[in-house]
Amino acid sequence: MFTPQGPSLRELAVQALSSVEHGYDLLAPKFDHTPFRTPDTILDAVERALAGLGPFDAGLDLCCGTGAGMGVLRDLCRESVTGVDISAGMLAVGRERAGAGKEGADSADGEPIPGGPRVSWVRGDARALPFGPVFDLAVSFGAFGHFLPDELPRLFAEAHSVLRPGGRFAFPLPAPAPPGSPWYWAALGFDTAMRVRNALWRPPFVMYYRPFRLGVVRDELERAGFEVELFALPEFGQRPDGSPRCRMVVATRPNT
């Protein structure tokens, strides 16, 4: 699963026994060499699907980590791109790899990239975002497993609050693996292990793969005031019943 540049088993164990924030601070230097980083195939598919919904001026990468989704926004947004994450370590790595240096990882002061939008890296909690309604597009990749189901209303309300009227909140959502698939049992086993870990150890490390399902997500987005559309990502094919293997969820803040 990991390249030679990735974390060792011991490093993963130390991370898993930490809080979410501190765990990702520890993992940050090697995060991009793990399977936890969103694959480029998904990033590229979402970018292609969003390109027809623009133009966008200001973009936000919610729970940006080391910045995999920031590249999507830099290609789509004309004026500014902002990444927000709770982990200072992930932000520092993202800034360094983007060529902005390590200083100011907690700063909201953007730095221009020649020929591209202004880029900012901001430390903040997705459940209490430090922004007003200034974004046309918000995206998130691979972060929703860190939020418990009862946190979704607050999370989606925050996403709604930072979008301008007509702004869009978009993210990929793969279909759940069928019960006969090894991925189904792998996810079930992982979630079970995390529940046992959190029952026995503090601080908790929230990371569950299975609760974030389309029906629940759609209902909570609509309760937050969004209008929800689904876009099939054809690059990933169809399930035996003809439904997409992966969708892009687009939640729009109404103009009124």
Rank of each mutant, 00 (worst) to 15 (best):
V139Y: 10
S80G: 15
P114A: 09
I86G: 02
G83A: 05
E151H: 13
V81E: 02
R95I: 00
S87L: 05
R123N: 06
G124N: 00
F131I: 01
G99H: 12
P133H: 10
H160G: 01
F144W: 10
D150R: 15
F141S: 08
P117E: 05
V134W: 00
E158I: 08
G124D: 01
G166S: 04
G101R: 07
V93H: 04
E79D: 14
W121Y: 07
A170W: 01
G99E: 10
R118Y: 10
G132D: 04
R97Y: 10
G94V: 11
E79C: 13
R95F: 03
S80Y: 07
G142C: 03
R168E: 09
L155K: 09
H146S: 08
A105H: 10
E111F: 07
A128T: 14
A128N: 15
R97W: 10
A88G: 15
I113V: 14
P114F: 08
A108D: 11
I113D: 06
P114R: 10
A126T: 11
P133G: 11
F135A: 02
A170I: 04
G145Y: 09
E103W: 06
E96T: 15
A88M: 15
M90I: 07
P165S: 10
F141V: 08
I86A: 13
G110N: 08
R95K: 13
S161W: 07
V134F: 03
V81N: 04
G110T: 07
L129D: 03
G142M: 00
L129F: 07
G166C: 05
V81C: 09
R123Q: 15
G142Y: 04
G124P: 01
A138V: 09
I86T: 04
M90C: 10
G94Y: 11
G167F: 00
I86Q: 03
R78D: 06
G116L: 03
D136Y: 02
T82K: 04
V122S: 06
S107A: 15
S87H: 02
W121H: 03
I86W: 05
F156V: 13
D85A: 13
K102A: 15
P112V: 12
R95H: 01
F156I: 12
D106F: 11
V84P: 02
A143H: 07
A138Y: 01
G145M: 05
P165C: 13
F131Q: 02
A108M: 11
R127N: 08
